[in-house]
Design a protein around this nucleic acid. Structure first.
Lengths: 245, 245
DNA sequence: TCGGCAACTTGATCAAAATCAAAGGCGTCT
DNA sequence: AGACGCCTTTGATTTTGATCAAGTTGCCGA
């Protein structure tokens, strides 16, 4: 996943993308790197900017996905729920990820902003048209899907085989490495998720998450202010606690 | 996932694929549906057939992936291990799935045959060349990636939020619906995994898996012979126990 | 400055699954 | 047939994390 970020950054800097897409700032990543100037212009004309406050739903589970979107700023939770209300967050998307479910009209997920989030939406008709005429775009979407698949499988190992302590440490590691991809790994950051969200991401309860965070604090693996602001003195130590070799 | 199987079956029957690919029987699905006769011929000339006995590794974790493969027959486990040996199976692939990690030279996974398995391998150079000249092929690979992503996320819900009982029932449901996709859902089948493998797939221990299977048997949700052969009188009942609404 | 509320923490107890331990099947090799 | 080995089941006990139940903290609006 480090490699993918690296690659994405390279795309942005090396390509001579005009700033037409600046209207939605989507040039900062996402999907634009593979398009011709004309196509970019086309895309930006059809794009709309949306701001979403925390907890607001982007796409509901089972709803028809009418659009794709670049995340400009913020964090989006992708989650699934069981009939009786048990919930599992199955993925987090950070700026500048591309969101959407190509070739599927039904979204099997609920997408919800975790913090104040800005997205740039493209109608699916436009994206589908561009995919048909620009093979590079499908390649880009394919790469995104493979990246998400890798992340999902990494997380399956965490969900299935790690202890509560390791899960919480793994979560903090994920946030540290993704919250600000432009600047690499952060050793100080605000948690984009509440304790309840963290619990849903880790397959734990709120209380267990809280206790494990307290333990990490007492063990000097992290420092905490505000219950949201985290400082990680040594990433190596965090990774060790997380069971990442 | 029902939809995808449906779709795959349709592909096979509707397309007028020549039987050149018969050399490796890969025509039964996989990747061939999107190619021209010439390209199929090209592909089949470079394909090699391999038989793999249970437990044998197909691609090792961290090894370079030199080839892609269609699964002709059998089941392949995709797994990840922690430094201390804890293991998690992150995916199962059934015939006629296409296996491989496009655009990534490093495999983050170990792929291992669960039962006697036949695969048809294509060197990555050939596939990469065909992807470049046949845009439909990348589309096909992209769809496969999205299908695997959906399955991975479904499984995350199972790993994170279901009880041991629900996990085991969910596993049996997966097998019933995937073991023989040509004929739809099976209500009688042989388990392709040992208890240890099932445990690694469900994030449980062998003992817990065994106890839950015993409980399902006592509750008349399933019948068992040989500890491998399973009969499911009512799929609805199994789904209900699995927490699938 | 004071409620009031939501999010978080902490404590006590409980339950589900892990662990430890011992049999019980079943196939294979001699 | 008998002995060995592997996989599976079953039982007893322990541990981890869930549940139930108070408290804190911090934030916002009156």
């Amino acid at each position: 996943m480090q490699i993918v970020n690296e690659h994405r950054r390279k795309d942005i800097h090396n390509s001579d993308i005009p700033t037409v897409c600046a209207a939605c700032e989507a040039r900062h990543g996402g999907v634009c790197g593979t398009l011709t100037p004309d196509q970019l212009l086309d895309l930006s004309r059809h794009s709309t900017r949306r701001s979403i406050e925390p907890g607001r739903e982007v796409i509901g589970q089972g709803e028809t996905t009418e659009s794709y979107a670049n995340i400009i700023k913020g964090v989006v939770k992708l989650s699934k729920v069981l009939a009786d209300g048990r919930q599992q967050i199955v993925g987090l998307q950070f700026a500048p990820d591309f969101m959407g479910r190509p070739f599927t009209r039904e979204s099997a997920l609920t997408a919800e902003a975790a913090v104040d989030t800005d997205i740039c939406c493209f109608p699916r008709t436009v994206i589908d048209r561009l995919v048909a005429e620009a093979p590079g775009l499908e390649h880009r979407l394919h790469e995104q899907a493979l990246k998400e698949l890798d992340e999902a499988r990494d997380w399956m190992l965490t969900l299935g085989r790690k202890t509560a302590q390791e899960k919480v440490a793994s979560f903090l590691y994920i946030i540290a490495t993704h919250i600000d991809p432009e600047n690499g790994t952060a050793n100080e950051f605000d948690l984009p998720l509440s304790r309840a969200d963290i619990a849903d991401y880790l397959g734990l309860t709120i209380e267990t998450v809280s206790r494990q965070i307290t333990k990490l604090r007492k063990d000097n693996v992290i420092r905490i202010e505000n219950s949201r602001h985290v400082n990680v003195p040594s990433l190596d130590r965090l990774m060790h606690v997380a069971g990442i070799d």
